[in-house]
Design a protein around this nucleic acid. Structure first.
Length: 571
DNA sequence: GCCGTTTTCGGCCCGACTGTTTTCAGTCG
């Protein structure tokens, strides 16, 4: 079993224990451990028992359970637990507004053990009348069932950000609103989000809530109170608005940005220092005197921490690092001097090299890498060697025109299923940079795929493996391969790994990119731009890089053109 | 079930909104 599967088992155990009304803290312990396992950059298989217990939230009991799963592929305790309740109860808990208590009540009173039987009961009016439940709850259950049947896709960061910015600009038209900004997972730069959180500062919360719940894009108002309201938009996204006094904006921003795990961690820390932290500020536990509230920086300072950038707030070691002032100095968009993965109309792009170069230059870049597809990718009008040499000539001519910008000749060479490349070494040697990628045969076994990638990296001309895992968000999972071995080979062969900035790719993701950095592998950011406006995707890649704790020194794009060419050389 | 700069036992983050109630439990983030 892999990390993800083991974390899932712990989460399901927590859900079952919750229905069984077990000890709340025991349930939390399972969820807490699951969260830490999901955040791990290393495979659980690589730990020994003592090492497992170094994972936060994993003690003697859970480490033994992990070992059992790693060895046998299952967990006896879990198998027994599953028998104790109908599995449909877990689906019922997924319905918004239905938690463990209601699920249990429904099962005990009406033997409801699936979404279907729940829907039937609600339609025939059997729910209203149960102790503590009336018509309103019955209606909400039917609404909730409809919602989960639609199974909304994960919302891509860029889409959610546009929606959020529209709402914020509407809110800001209200003169009573002093400040408004994105919070939640969107502010932390997660690649996909479940909802949108917005924080506003105003002395007149009511007016803000009126405006918000009355916006054109609102389909349903889920909740509306004086401090907090939630709506669902016409395209199905839940948006939460929290309004606070401007005086506590910083505290509220910390609280509302999360993550939940990060918040728990800093609240625990506060408590140890005889402080209390909530969305209104940091307070002295005894005197209730306020220590900080208005600015985010002050909140962290009051806890003895340096400021933690939102992208790091995942309880992945950032609080510990902030304590000893060892947080990384994260890369920013302004550190980027080049785009290292760009297409043109020579293959499947829609603009000339010249237009792409002009755009990149105007963005302030010093160079860019033109990396059109190789011949094997017929669907993308991949270049054969003859056309590639013509393109190299055109780039030479264009480079004469530019004084302060350089175009590097490259190719995104297809890695064939046996690990050989789509161009011979004779051709590759004439390129400034070689990018290599898998575009087919995703279903190979993990072993074959690992060998395929390793062989490509061992080629003396391959400089960067682009979109290394091949996942497409909402469409296709990553292909199977041994990431640790690929990272090790990347390090040994001086091959960089890309964070592809295309919104659906963002590949490597934050966890993998951080692992690569830890092993000393260089990271390359490439937009994979197929048109001039797609250079903008760079900010998404930078965001992933920041979540991966990347600094300037880890990223090839921060080097001057000369340094870049020197650093990527093999041997 | 985890964890320890007061603790190896006794704690474990904090508050808002809904729907049902007449002061609160359940759910959510």
């Amino acid at each position: 079993m892999n990390n993800k599967e083991i974390a899932r088992v712990f989460r399901v155990i927590a859900d079952i224990l919750e229905i069984k009304d077990e000890n709340f803290f025991r349930i939390r312990a399972y969820r807490n451990a699951a969260g830490h396992i999901e955040n791990l950059t290393q495979d659980l298989n690589d730990f020994n028992q003592a090492g497992l217990q170094d994972i936060p939230g994993v003690g003697a009991d859970l480490s033994a359970k992990i070992i059992e799963m790693l060895k046998s592929g299952k967990l006896e305790y879990f198998e027994e637990l599953k028998k104790s309740i109908p599995c449909g109860l877990l689906d019922i808990m997924d319905i918004p507004g239905i938690g463990p208590k209601t699920t249990k009540l429904l099962y005990e009173k009406l033997r409801i053990d699936s979404i279907d039987s729940l829907e039937k009961a609600a339609r025939s009016g059997l729910i209203a009348g149960l102790p503590g439940l009336k018509e309103k709850t019955q209606e909400n259950i039917l609404k909730g069932i409809l919602l989960i049947k639609q199974k909304p896709e994960k919302i891509l960061f860029s889409y959610a950000q546009n929606t959020a910015e529209n709402i914020i600009s509407s809110l800001k038209k209200l003169k009573e609103i002093k400040q408004a900004c994105i919070a939640g997972s969107l502010r932390r730069g997660k690649e996909t989000v479940r909802d949108i959180d917005i924080l506003a500062a105003s002395l007149s919360a009511e007016k803000a809530m009126e405006l918000f719940t009355g916006l054109d894009l609102v389909k349903d108002v889920i909740a509306k109170g004086p401090a907090k309201s939630s709506i669902r938009t016409k395209d199905g996204i839940q948006v939460d608005l929290r309004v606070v006094d401007p005086k506590s904006f910083g505290a509220a921003l910390v609280y509302f940005t999360g993550s939940k795990e990060h918040n728990i961690r800093i609240r625990e820390l506060a408590k140890k220092n005889n402080l209390k932290i909530n969305e209104y500020g940091v307070f002295d536990l005894k005197t209730d005197k306020i220590a900080a509230a208005e600015k985010e920086e002050d909140i962290y300072a009051a806890l003895g921490l340096s400021f933690i950038p939102p992208e790091l707030r995942e309880d992945r070691g950032e609080v510990e690092a902030a304590k000893i002032k060892k947080l990384p100095k994260l890369i920013t968009l302004s550190d980027i001097k080049a785009d290292l993965h760009v297409h043109s109309e020579w293959s499947d792009g829609n603009a000339s090299i010249s237009v792409m170069a002009e755009t990149a230059f105007k963005k302030g870049y010093e160079y860019m890498v033109i990396s059109d597809h190789s011949q094997g990718l017929g669907i993308a009008r991949g270049l054969n060697p003859q056309r590639l040499y013509k393109q190299i000539d055109e780039i030479k001519t264009l480079n004469k025109k530019f004084k302060k910008f350089r175009i590097l000749s490259a190719a995104e060479v297809d890695i064939k299923s046996d690990g050989t490349l789509d161009f011979s070494e004779d051709v590759l040697k004439d390129l400034d940079v070689v990018l290599a990628a898998v575009h087919s045969g995703f279903k190979q076994s993990s072993r074959e795929m690992t060998k395929r990638l390793v062989k490509a990296m061992e080629n003396r001309y391959v400089n960067i493996i682009v979109h290394p895992t091949g996942r497409l968000i909402n469409e296709r999972p990553r292909y199977e391969f041994d990431f640790e071995e690929v990272v090790k080979t990347a390090k040994d062969t001086n091959t960089a790994l890309e964070i592809n900035c295309y919104p659906k790719r963002l590949d490597l993701d934050d966890i993998h990119a951080r692992r690569a950095k830890q092993e000393g592998v260089r990271i390359s950011l490439g937009t994979d731009a197929h048109s001039a406006e797609q250079f903008e995707f760079m900010r998404l890649g930078v965001m992933v890089g920041r979540r991966a704790w990347l600094e300037k020194k880890d990223v090839l794009n921060c080097l001057s053109c000369e340094e870049f060419l020197k650093k990527i050389k093999k041997d």
